[in-house]
Each structure stands twice: as C-alpha cells, then as structure tokens.
Design a protein around this nucleic acid. Structure first.
Lengths: 235, 235
DNA sequence: CCAAAAGTGTTATGCTTACACCCATGC
DNA sequence: GCATGGGTGTAAGCATAACACTTTTGG
C-alpha cells in the first residue's frame, strides 16, 4: 500500500506527513543457529529500563533510505559481523503498550546461520558493551517486551516452512553429511526421525548432489558429503 | 521489537522518540470475497497524484492507541460497514520509494468475507466520494504503488493456508452446501476438483456437521446444508 | 577386537487420484 | 419426461512409517 492512504488521504485536501500520528518503527532480528544439537537464538541483555536485566532480541531503528530487509541485514551484521545470510520477514508486532516508553511498531525478521560461521566470527555485542549470548529456544531466560511471543511464533513458522521448503539447508555449511542434515530437522521438529526413512525421502527429491568426498571425523566410518542443488524443489 | 532498541537505544545515553527517523505507517486491507464463482478484491480508485486514476487497496493511518489489527478492522468497517470479519496479517511492505511522497511502511492485512454479507451491506467508498469496486483477482486493472505485488502475495498465502487450515469457511455463510464449499476451493486454487474425492476428504475430517436441512434452489435435487464445527482441525 | 557412527531394504498401511452412473427436484 | 445439479464406490499407485543388521573407520 504504499500508503493506501487512499482513505485517509483522499479525504484530506492536502497531504502532509506530519499531520498523521507517527509511531516509532524498528526492525528486530531473531538470529538462529544450531549449536551442539540444540536450536539457539542470539539474545542481548538489557542494561536499562524498561526490562533492565532481561534478555531481548536484537534490533534497531530503520534508516529513512533503507529497505526493511536492508535494515535487518545491517542489524545482523552489527551483531554477528556476518553478511549475505538467509533472512525472512516473520511478522509485525505493534500493540500499543508493548513498549512502556512510546508506541513502537516492530517488523521482525529471522535469520538462519550455519554455526560454523559463528566460530570464525564471534559474537560481539554490537557497538555497545551489552552482553550477548546464544540461548536454547527450548530453555529461555526472562525476556523483555513481548519477545517470548515473538520467539514462539518464530519456532512455529520455522517448523511450518521446514516441511515444504529447503530452508533447513540454511543452517548448514555448503557441504554436509546426511546425519548433520537430519540433526537439523530433529532439533527444529524436536523429535527423533528414522534414519532410513529420512535418507530415502531427502534423496528422492534430487536436491542433493553427492560431492564424492567424505567427512572423516572421529573413529568410525566416514560420511559422504553432499551439496545442496539450488536448482530444485522441496524437501 | 518493542523497541529492540536494544542496540540503538542502549548506546544512546537517553531515549527520545523524536531523535529517530520516523516513517509514516499505514495499514492496508485486502478485502476478498467470492462472487459469481470468481475471487474478487475490493479496490478504490485514486483521485489524485500519485497514481491518479489507478486502483488501490484501501488503507489508512494507524491511530496511536489502537493495535494494528484494530486499525485493519476499522478500515474494513469504513469500506464495507462490516465488523467481526476474519482478518489476518499478510506482510509488511516498506521499500523506500514505493510511495513517491514520503517513506511509507504499510502493514497489510487480508480479510475474507461471505459475499452474502456484501449484498446486505453494500460497498460505500468510505467517508469520501471515491469510487470502489470488486475486481477479479484474475483480471486486475492498473494498480497504484506496489499493490500488484501485494495481491500476488495475498493469493499465494491464501492458497497455502487453504491446504492446512479451515480458512476457506470464512468465505461462506454459516450454513452451506458441499458444492458451494468446493467452488470456494476451486476458485482459490484456480482448477477443477473431483467431486467425489473432495467430498470424501472434507467429510473425513469431521469438521462438518450435517444440519439435517437442505437448500432448495433451482429445478434439481436439493443439497444438504452443513455447518462448520469450530471444535476441529484441518481441511 | 571394540566402539562409534554410516549406510542399507522390505513390508503394511493410509492417502491420493482417476473414473461414471443414478437420484431428486421443478417445469 | 427432460434438464439440472446432488449424491455415491472402487481400484491402482504412491507416500509414509515401522523395523535391525552390516560396514568402515580409529584406537
């Protein structure tokens, strides 16, 4: 709608942006990864009122000349120093009173990153000295604002999309083993899957290319490495 | 979210809303119904620059003390005089430049209404004299702003949700025949469905109650009337 | 040779699809 | 009695789910 001010504006003789109420608008980013077979989210600790001492989803204001997604990418880079990460808009939260200071409308995105990238690019607490940490989505601390709802909703969406998209690959490096892929599915769905059925299903879609190489790790049989073929559909 | 000004604010010594850029925020509502076995959307004709003469999705500004959904309900009521209608948040559009006047971020909702309600409560062009009309989603006029994208996305979402929710019932009156229900599915999916398979599937879910009554209409066998049982799952 | 994870097939069950004819009514 | 939409069953193919043992490696 770019302003489908059709109603509001059509009736006004002249349009001046400052004539209308203007809430603050922020972008928050739910940054997810899989660490130690656990689904984790990056949270920052609040230092001041409101919700001092509670943990929050990182976010910030939108610049006037950047898109919503660009604001989310910028926020992600400030928090993790990573760019080019998978990002998707989740939902917009805007109840009056969700922030006690003023009316704030927040467009929430979620990002999925391969945890290998985190090790090489450690979390810094953005530009300020605030504390940041990776928390299990299944064991969260006290959260600020309506951030518990946001994380609930994120998990729902992630589970839904896992079934009919290839979103799961975003949590893995370019090359991965089938066991690693299965672990991603298991931690998101929060249940064990049958190895044979999982492999048959995922291989039957032809979205995986066998690299011919293997991953040697630990004292056991090496695992084949696969690559995601982006020229395909479904998992 | 709620100001996850964590980043932006945490670093600022004091927080004053007016220190940050504030785009305009509007709510637009894609109002859908099924008329004459066609999926239609309510559009309003723009009278002035920008996009004078183009058609637009109705929308308006958010009051400072109302929720996003309440703003959408208010907008819906202004356009159709209906309340208590099924509404769902679709997506938030906010590219700079989508409105040539100023930076506008629009939270888009979509509404599904039973076309019987329209007849009894005819469309009025909100509070102004603008023209309003129901257009087929499959045959749209020239649209203002990025509204063509918004309608594309609405259709995608509606198709997706039709498969795993009971959203389809929102387009029908309380009591309806199976043929009417099938017609809703056909027009949204834009393909013919097999009558026997459709009936078996929908009845197997036990979300339909047979009212015991029938609908007599035209010179042919009367059709059983069913009611949606909200205490159930899936279609 | 032991431990640990990788890899592999078969069967039963349920869901999806394709397909054609009779029924109840008004005129 | 004819036209119109309402209503019904069956068989084939496909996807899902349950289930246990062998292979390859390092130590």
């Amino acid at each position: 709608m770019a302003t489908s001010d059709t109603t509001a504006e059509e009736s006004a003789a002249t349009y001046r942006a400052e004539d209308y109420p203007r809430p603050s608008v922020t972008v928050d980013v739910v940054i997810l990864t899989v660490i130690d077979a656990d689904l984790r989210v990056l949270l920052v600790k609040r230092g001041r009122w409101p919700y001092a001492g509670h943990w929050a989803i990182p976010g910030g204001f939108i610049n006037m000349d950047e898109s919503l997604e660009a604001a989310a990418q910028r926020e992600l880079k400030e928090e993790t120093n990573l760019s080019g990460i998978y990002l998707e808009q989740l939902y917009t939260f805007g109840n009056p009173g969700r922030d006690p200071r003023t009316r704030v409308i927040t467009v929430v995105y979620y990002a999925l990153i391969d945890s290998a990238l985190i090790a090489s690019s450690p979390v810094r607490a953005a530009d300020d000295a605030a504390e940041a940490a990776w928390y299990s989505l299944y064991d969260l601390p006290a959260l600020a604002f309506d951030h518990d709802q946001i994380l609930d909703y994120t998990l729902q969406r992630l589970r839904g999309k896992l079934e009919y998209t290839t979103i799961g690959f975003q949590l893995l490096p370019d090359e991965f083993t089938l066991s690693e892929l299965q672990a991603v599915y298991e931690v998101i769905q929060h249940r064990r899957l049958d190895k044979r059925n999982f492999r048959r299903k995922v291989l039957s879609t032809n979205i995986l290319q066998d690299t011919g190489r293997t991953k040697m790790e630990g004292s056991h049989r090496p695992a084949r490495l696969y690559r995601f073929d982006p020229a395909a559909r479904q998992v």
